[in-house]
Structures are given as structure tokens and as C-alpha cells.
Design a protein around this nucleic acid. Sequence first.
DNA 1: TATATATGGTTTGTGACACAGACCAGTTTG
DNA 2: CAAACTGGTCTGTGTCACAAACCATATATA
Lengths: 106, 106
Amino acid sequence: MSRGGLTIEGIDRLIHEPARLIVMTILNAVESADFLYLQRETGLTKGNLSAHLAKLDAEGYITIEKTYKGKIPLTICRLSEAGRIAFGRYRAEWEKFMKKTRLKRA
Amino acid sequence: MSRGGLTIEGIDRLIHEPARLIVMTILNAVESADFLYLQRETGLTKGNLSAHLAKLDAEGYITIEKTYKGKIPLTICRLSEAGRIAFGRYRAEWEKFMKKTRLKRA
DNA sequence: TATATATGGTTTGTGACACAGACCAGTTTG
DNA sequence: CAAACTGGTCTGTGTCACAAACCATATATA
């Protein structure tokens, strides 16, 4: 099966998922954000957001720090260096691909 | 649950899927393509490609014409007008979103 | 005539995933 | 004490991407 000329090999599907892309985008902008802030910004449910964060954490794209605000638990997320690199790469690859889609029509 | 400011509502997930995005991109460029040509170009397996085409067809984004080349079956795919519009919209929405991701870092 | 091999796909099985709702632990308020 | 809020995690469910198996037909080959 010869590989086609128009593959998307460089696309990181972990980031490609819209929900996670939003999270990555926010974290890239704000440097650190707590769980509820992310929930408000993204509009995701707690469960969904929690799962996405866990996935990004497992991949090493973000760090999750569990701490306390007074006596109340507080989860703080940050983009890791690896995450920052992956995010940059994703945008570059995507940009590259999207340029190709602008081919003249037949 | 108040909606966040950074949603991706305009993103058509049917098109967002990389495999289908490639198919749409090809069809947008070539005007018509048969099954095996698409398979070669995309590098997808038959089954996978078949499923993706069915999905695009169900949504009305492409038309599938089953005909014969001599005595051998031949499936020809074309982007429908709706598909062309949706594809254009997708690219525009995506461009818009990606611009927002370029926010200055904290 | 058997049989192998290619063409052009569709159907089926499976594992991963997105999503929301139920649940839980601790805290503050009445 | 009870109710309600905060800050999350765990669980169940439906959907999906993917490849392998299968099917129907056509052509080559021995």
C-alpha cells in the first residue's frame, strides 16, 4: 500500500481534539489555571474536563498540581515545556497542511 | 453552565477528522475521483475509506455514483455543493480559531 | 475444468474515546 | 444536625476510527 501524497502524519491527534485544543490554547496563554477556571472557559463538564486533563497529563503536556486554597482543594494546571513544544509543532503542521488545501479547483 | 469565551462551535467535526479532511481536500481539488484513486492518495484501507465515504455521503457532502468500467464496478465520488460550502466554512472557522491561539504568552 | 489471483469494494468486530451524570469528600451556612 | 456548595473523580454509554474478514466478479494459468 504505497503511501499517498496527502497524509497528515505530523498532526498530533491528542491536541487535534477540539476540547483539548482549547485547553492547550488557554494554558499556553495564561501560564497557569485552576480546574474551575478552565471549566468556565471551555464550557466542558467537570467529568469531561477531568478526563481531558488526565490525558494531557499522561502525555506530559501539562502538569497538574493538587494543592489547597485555605481548606478547599485546588487543582492548578500548567503547560509543560514538552506541551509548549508540541503545541507549537501542531500549529505549524496544521498551517502547513491547510496551505495545501488551498489548491486551485479543477 | 455559562459558555466559555473560547469555544469551537463552528468546527464541523465530520470534516475535522483528519482522514475525511484529506478526502474532502482531494475532492475539492480534482472534481471527481474513483475509490481506488482515493485509497492510494489517502493511504487508508478499503474498509476505512468506505466508512468515511459513507459518512460524508450521509451528510450530503459528497455524491457517490456506482457505475462500471467495462464489466468491473467503479465508484466515483464528487464533492456536492453542500460539501463545497461546508469545506469552505470549515477552513474559515479554523483559520479564525487559529488566529486566536496566537495570543501573547503570559 | 479446477484454481489461483486481481479488482472493487462492503460488512463485521474491536478497542479507544468523548461525554455527561452519578457519586464522593470536605466545608460552610442555617 | 441538615442542607447546600465547592472541587473534583469515577462510571456507564453511545459513537467512532480502524483493519481484517468476507463477498462477488473477472481474468489468467495449468
